[in-house]
């Protein structure tokens, strides 16, 4: 499906997401291999399937994003969620403009789900400088806290990696603003005629 299809109104249903289930592992593995080595949690030790599987099973929660035709096109994971009230949001899409556009559109909703579903104060997002940015409207809310220069080799050159953070307060305020903006302005009450 193309943007033209969407504009023409031929799309039957909007993209959607759901919680990950064990039968999604083949898709997750495929996605990891396609973006290799950018999904560092999985790729750093190589792609031996049992190791990738063990890593996937250690993840707190995750979702699969589907396109208009129900095809899985992206995956998001909430990792390292622990007693300190923090977690890591990891998000990758199939490397094409169509999948990435859908992923960007849904990112704020997925981040909201992470905050709603777990007691997280601070949500981290790690990325290589060359990773496609998929955070969509939430991108500007994240603040870089740590930069690892020349962290790992990708495609023959060392890429820098950053850790950004989004606090639950900041996201909550932003979400409230979005909701307020989406609601029609309320008419002031009429003064009763005396």
């Amino acid at each position: 499906m193309t943007d033209t299809d969407l504009a023409a109104g031929t799309a039957t249903k909007p993209p959607w997401w759901r919680l990950i289930v064990p039968t999604d592992l083949p898709f997750l593995y495929e996605l990891v291999t396609i973006v290799d080595p950018r999904w560092w949690r999985f790729s750093r030790g190589g792609l031996e399937p049992q190791r990738v599987l063990a890593t996937a099973q250690s993840i707190a929660a995750g979702v699969i994003v589907h396109d208009h035709d129900d095809r899985p096109i992206a995956a998001a994971l909430l990792a390292d969620a622990g007693a300190s009230g923090t977690g890591s949001f990891e998000y990758f899409a199939m490397p094409d403009a169509y999948a990435q556009a859908i992923a960007r559109d849904l990112a704020p909703e997925l981040i909201g789900a992470a905050f709603d579903g777990a007691p997280i104060r601070r949500l981290y997002h790690e990325r290589f400088e060359g990773d496609p940015m998929l955070l969509g409207a939430a991108e500007a809310l994240f603040e870089v806290e740590v930069t690892y220069p020349a962290f790992a080799p990708i495609g023959g050159r060392f890429e820098t990696r950053t850790i950004s953070v989004l606090t639950s307060e900041r996201f909550g305020e932003w979400r409230q603003q979005q909701r307020s903006a989406a609601q029609p302005e309320q008419q002031p009450e009429q003064e009763p005629a005396s």
Binding site: R121, V146, T147
Partner: peptide, 14 residues
């Protein structure tokens, strides 16, 4: 390389 603000809770304090 940076500072992870309020990253950990020690004795309940960030």
């Amino acid at each position: 390389l940076g500072v992870l603000r309020e990253r950990m809770l020690v004795d309940g304090r960030p």
